[in-house]
Each structure stands twice: as structure tokens, then as C-alpha cells.
Design a protein around this nucleic acid. Structure first.
Lengths: 250, 250
DNA sequence: GCCTGGATGTCGTGA
DNA sequence: TCACGACGTCCAGGC
């Protein structure tokens, strides 16, 4: 892990560092007054302003202003970065094909350039996802309803894969759609399509559909009722029973 | 526009710069070996590794590895950043309420800290959006079909606002759903919901629905056909007729 | 504040 | 490669 930084570099010096860093897979940040042109899936133009530009060795480029979580401009992984000096400005160009996309950042003034070497990595562990909800229900199918017997996950249907497919206490086919958080009408439509597809496979068997999520919007509940579908409240992680006090320390 | 940088600072020096920068609204970057803990809408834990951390004055914080476009951890705008030294490590904590979310970044080694002052701004101009497609069609409704007469945009229905509502050459109500790029089955479902809602308003008038997009997937085309809906190919920006030669210069 | 739907969404997975 | 759906989606706009 090292960091190399140039403060108010000449374009020539900045160019040398950029080419070196792009070549040996270092991460780069630039800060300065620049314009940005993008052409690809859409087309955009960003007038002069102060921005932070991040270039990653996997081909990602991010242009950040001092607001918002999303970069104002970017390119996804897989792009090729090149730096050059044109008309007295330092230009960083990032391109890819399929789809054809190009991003040009032109600095009229560069306050700082840094190159960082990344050596240590470690993977993220995340809980609270839809997969956690699925595991929870497979552990305890009664969370959906008494007597529910899961038979398959991601079972293919004409309308796409069903999250959990099984039988209810009466032996009727049961389609379960999972959502990790509060849902809107689209989930009701999704479940309806699945139930119709499965119904076509098991005519006359009275296929049922249940949406499992922490909660649903009012409109969604109406839609479910109209279609003869059900909602069951469940969270991807078991709710805590006690409240925690949270101080500043550890 | 200024940049202040500390190379391999002591935690004490880094803390002083962070507090100063958080206080006067500067953007901050940090690079070093750190762990990250998040708890909020989900829960995650990231073991030690080299990362770039960006703190914005609007309360955004981003933790980037050397891969991917998305930060591995983050907080959205509106959070409060605080820095402190705990157990010999520099800790940056970012919190918000509604929902309650907390992010802790703990540096065991800090290679560099920088604070940037952002003064100049400029807004992004973007073309190729769904709104551009709408304007194109309102300019030339025959792009949808000969004789189409738009009557309203964002017209409210029981299923939500319809992109363009109008009449066909026969005077029948026509619902137009716009998508700026190639679409999947969800768009067919969305259009179907709109058409059903409008059909309930104009019983017996033979309400029609047309999906306008650059292209659709095969499955989506099937779904549209099943429901008696149509697809018309159109791009948000007029396609160029000639090919451009693209050199490296300007 | 909640709800809704677009996005240069990004990202993983499977065919 | 494309299609499809999840995501701590983010985000603007309405109410």
C-alpha cells in the first residue's frame, strides 16, 4: 500500500504519473477544474467546475462533485483509460465497446493527482437480503403458513423462476414470492403472473400465491385481494425483542 | 479551489484535518487499510483491506475498493460525519435517522488524507432520456402510428400516470408507454395495467396500448401479443444516417 | 413524511 | 453474449 501525490503538477508531470499508474494497475484520484463530455447510452455535457475524478485499474472511472452519492459522470468496469495533453489541457479519455461509450474529462487546472497501490483485500459479508429471507423460510416454512411444504426454490415457470414453490396443508400447489422490504404493486403483478403460469401447469388444482415481505402498500394489498392472492408479513432477519442502547463508544 | 494533503499522518494530525474539513464544508478523501461496519437497512461487515474513502460536505460517504463502479459501502446525503481516535485507530462514523443507519470506518493505517475546497459548479446537460423520447413523439406523433393524436402527458389513471394518452385515427383511446432503451417483460405488464385502467374508464371504446422503445426482448413481444398490445420501435434521439470517422484528436 | 417510477441505473446469475 | 430480476438500489416529483 503506497500513495504517490503531485500537488499542482504541470500537465507533463501529471501525464507521466497517470500513464505509469494506468500501466501498473494503481487506483488514481484527480482533483481540479474540468469539463466532462459523455457519449454512449445517452449523451451529456458538463461545463467547467471543480470535481474529484477516480480511475480504477478495472476500467471504472467516476466523476464526483461535492454533492450526492452518485457520480455526475462515470464509466463502468471494462473501459480503457488513456491520458494525453491537448490544447494545453490534460485529457483523460475512457472508452469501451458493446455498447460504444466514451467519456472525456478535460482539466484546465489540476490541483492534485494521486496514485494508490491496492494490495490487501477482503470480501463483504452482508445480511438482510432476499436470500436471508428465503433461508429463514426454508428453516421454518410455518412462517408462510401452517402446513406449508417447500418443494423447490427458483423453480422455472413460463413466467420465470418462482422464489419458493411447494404445497399447502391440503396438497395444493403454492407459489411464494419473496421481497426483502416493503413492496409496491409490481410485486403483486409478478406474483399473479407466476400463479397464472403454474395454474396452466396444474389445471383444476387450485394453485395459490402468497407474497412474503415486511409490508405492502395499501394499493398493493388491494391488488392482491382482487387477484385472490395473499400477503404474509416476514422480515429477512428475525426482529429483535429488546431495544439496544447505543452510545458513542465500543 | 485548494487541496490540503497529509502523507502518512499521525492519527492526531489526520483527526485535526478531518474535523477542520468537516467543519468548513470541504470534500475529503482518505486512503489506507481499514475495516468497515454498516448497520441499517441491512447489516454488513468488511474485513481489513486497502480502500479509498470519500466524504462529501452534504453528508455522503463512499468507500471504494479498486474494483467496480459502486462503492462497497456508503451512506447517502444527509448523514453526519464524525472522526475520532479509538483503540489506536482513526474512526470515521457516519450516521442518520429515518431510517437509522450507521457506518463506521476504522483505519489501522492511513496512507494519505486530503481535503478539497469546491468553489466552481456547473450543471449537467443530458440527452437521450425518456423525456427526449416523449418530446420527439409529441413533435411527430406519426412515429407512433399514422393518425395518432396526443391529448395529454402523464395522464392520471387508477394504475398510475400514463406517459402519453391520446386517440388513434379511429378516435379510440390510445395509451402510449415510453422506454428509452430495450425493455423486458415488466414494461409489458406496466402497459397492460394502464390499458386495463383506461378501459375501465371508457368501457366498450376499444382502448389500445402501444409500447414505444428502441427494441423489446422476445419474451416481452410474446406478452404484448397475448394481451393485444403493440410495439413500435423508436429511439429517444434520431439515429444518424452517416457513419462518423472517430480519430483521437478534436 | 410515504409512495411511485425512471436510470448512462449497477450487478450477479443462468441459458 | 443476452435476458432477467435484486438492490442497503439512488433520485426527483407528487401528495
Amino acid at each position: 500500500m503506497t500513495a504517490t501525490t503531485l500537488h499542482r503538477p504541470t500537465h507533463r508531470d501529471a501525464l507521466a504519473l497517470l500513464e505509469e499508474a494506468f500501466g501498473d494497475g494503481r487506483m488514481v484520484t484527480m482533483f481540479g477544474r474540468c469539463t466532462v463530455e459523455y457519449d454512449g447510452r445517452a449523451t451529456s455535457s458538463l461545463g467547467p467546475g471543480d470535481r474529484l475524478v477516480v480511475c480504477k485499474p478495472d476500467g471504472t472511472i467516476l466523476v464526483h462533485t461535492d454533492e450526492k452519492r452518485k457520480p455526475v459522470n462515470w464509466q463502468p468496469p471494462g473501459c480503457t483509460h488513456r491520458a494525453s495533453v491537448r490544447d494545453g489541457r490534460l485529457r483523460v479519455r475512457s472508452e469501451r465497446s458493446t455498447p460504444t461509450e466514451r467519456l472525456d474529462v478535460r482539466f484546465e487546472r489540476l490541483e492534485q493527482v494521486s496514485a494508490y497501490e491496492v494490495t490487501d483485500r477482503s470480501d463483504l459479508r452482508l445480511t438482510g437480503s432476499e436470500e436471508d429471507l428465503r433461508e429463514r423460510i426454508l428453516d421454518d416454512p410455518a412462517l408462510v403458513e401452517e402446513g406449508f411444504v417447500p418443494r423447490a426454490t427458483e423453480r422455472e415457470t413460463a413466467a420465470g423462476p418462482v422464489d419458493i414453490f411447494g404445497e399447502d396443508a391440503e396438497g395444493r400447489p403454492l407459489v411464494v414470492e419473496l421481497k426483502r422490504r416493503r413492496v409496491g404493486p409490481s410485486a403483486a403483478g409478478q406474483l399473479r403472473r407466476y400463479v397464472e403460469a403454474v395454474d396452466a401447469e396444474f389445471p383444476g388444482e387450485g394453485v395459490r400465491g402468497i407474497l412474503v415481505a415486511p409490508s405492502v402498500t395499501d394499493r398493493t394489498k388491494e391488488l392482491l385481494d382482487e387477484k385472490g392472492l395473499s400477503f404474509v408479513a416476514a422480515e429477512p432477519v428475525a426482529a429483535e425483542d429488546g431495544d439496544r442502547s447505543e452510545g458513542d463508544g465500543e
